[in-house]
Design a protein around this nucleic acid. Structure first.
Lengths: 246, 246
DNA sequence: ACACTAAGGATTGTTGAACAATTCTTCAAT
DNA sequence: ATTGAAGAATTGTTCAACAATCCTTAGTGT
């Protein structure tokens, strides 16, 4: 392709140097996008505290104190909180502030409505199933098995989330992945509200393994059907646990 | 049943009156939630201007002037803009502000990736298919037919969106509906970037009718398959139109 | 004519303080 | 034990400021 001449002074108007400089600039911008804005960082911290269970459902988040703790102005914090409200992790009560969401049975049902529609479909449709993505599903299975063997139940729960995340990622859609992340964050809220996560995730280790096996063997529809049944059972358990806690 | 005694003074601690008053309070709060915050209103106005095509792709949105025009402070506007960035309607360029998103081919492909996964699945799975929701699908078809008969192509486009929205709503999931609204807003951005919406929507009137027919006749899988083909064709057209514009 | 540089102006990211409106608390009076 | 009213605290929102960054432009040298 000809003009790989470094620093060609004239001609196309844009020298090869210009192209390189553009690239450098774009890289710097992308880099800065990672550290992102102050509000995004604040949102990330609060979200982490909520999904980790350190901020329990129903706790009120006073803006002044929280802003102080995060080392950020009240205005900036407000932007962060709005973001988390949009993610359904927090709930805004007009003139009363923001509280950590307390999911109800309808929320569990709706999250599973979406998951049961999306996850089996991602398995059944072959589109996007690259070897790497299929390998990611298998990797989540072994991650869960290893965590189970050393009795690390938090690890099992985490691996389980990775499994379902990997299933959705089979489709290869950034938008779908982002949506799934929100749903999984909500799931963690559910778990914190009932407690006893170990019992809950234990039996699904083998389920995940079976589904991954069907997937790698090429039986996509079988994998999808099995996942649907899996999700139905899990939803039933969760809803039952929620109803007990009323 | 039983204690429908009005104003029972003691006993359960909470009288029936208390319950009513709680309801009134909740209603007032819900009411106020509708008018919502100042930032939400600003976001709605800007979003409307973008999806209606009055603010074209790539136009920069200076905060000071825009805030002035909307009668809102720069801080509040900022919150609104962040929301729209999260919806992918706007794009934030660090230290350079916010511009109306200019979708690329990858965006079209990804939106259709999600739609082709979700919409056929919503049809094929019977769950949630109440008579009212099925009627809503049929209503969107007649809305489109009538708009076509009087040559109202904007109306056809709008009805087409209502059709797909109704298809997803068959599942009866608020979360899925919200997600679909975002995708449809992105779709409108796509259309504005290519132009000529009449040619695009015209042939799909009959498709919609056929799909609705299959649905009402109980052939859910047939409806799903046909919708999948429909979406594949539409995506192909859109992508082709996008590639021309490069 | 052309590329390079420096200065100046404009815009963004973020903060701090303010203030009306609303909600929560306290506490006395019935 | 309820009610009511005063007072404190919090939210929703605005305004003004400032450093950091970007954009423009005019000038400089070649």
């Amino acid at each position: 392709m000809g003009t790989t001449d470094p620093a060609s002074p004239t001609g196309d108007g844009r020298s090869a140097l210009d192209a390189v400089l553009d690239e450098v600039l774009a890289a710097r911008r992308a880099e800065r996008t990672v550290m992102s804005t102050s509000a995004d960082r604040a949102a990330r911290v609060v979200r982490e505290q909520v999904v980790e269970g350190h901020l329990r459902s129903g706790t009120r988040l006073p803006e002044e104190r929280l802003a102080g703790a995060l080392g950020v102005s009240r205005n900036t914090l407000r932007e962060a909180l709005s973001q988390l409200v949009a993610e359904r992790i927090l709930v805004r009560e007009p003139n009363r502030g923001v509280v950590v969401a307390t999911p109800a049975v309808v929320d569990v049902e709706d999250v599973y409505r979406v998951r049961r529609l999306v996850e089996p479909a991602a398995l059944a449709r072959g589109t996007g199933h690259t070897p790497e993505r299929i390998a990611a599903v298998a990797a989540a299975v072994t991650e869960g098995r290893e965590a189970g063997e050393r009795g690390d139940w938090d690890g099992v729960a985490s691996a389980n989330q990775h499994f379902h995340r990997a299933v959705v990622s089979l489709a290869g859609s950034p938008r779908l992945d982002a949506q799934m992340d929100l749903l999984l964050a909500e799931m963690r809220l559910f778990f914190h509200q009932m407690g006893a996560p170990e019992r809950f995730h234990r039996p699904y280790l083998e389920e995940n393994a079976a589904i991954a096996g069907l997937l790698t063997s090429g039986d996509r529809q079988g994998a999808a059907d099995r996942l649907d049944a899996y999700l139905a059972a899990a939803e039933g358990q969760l809803v039952a646990a929620f109803r007990d806690r009323d």
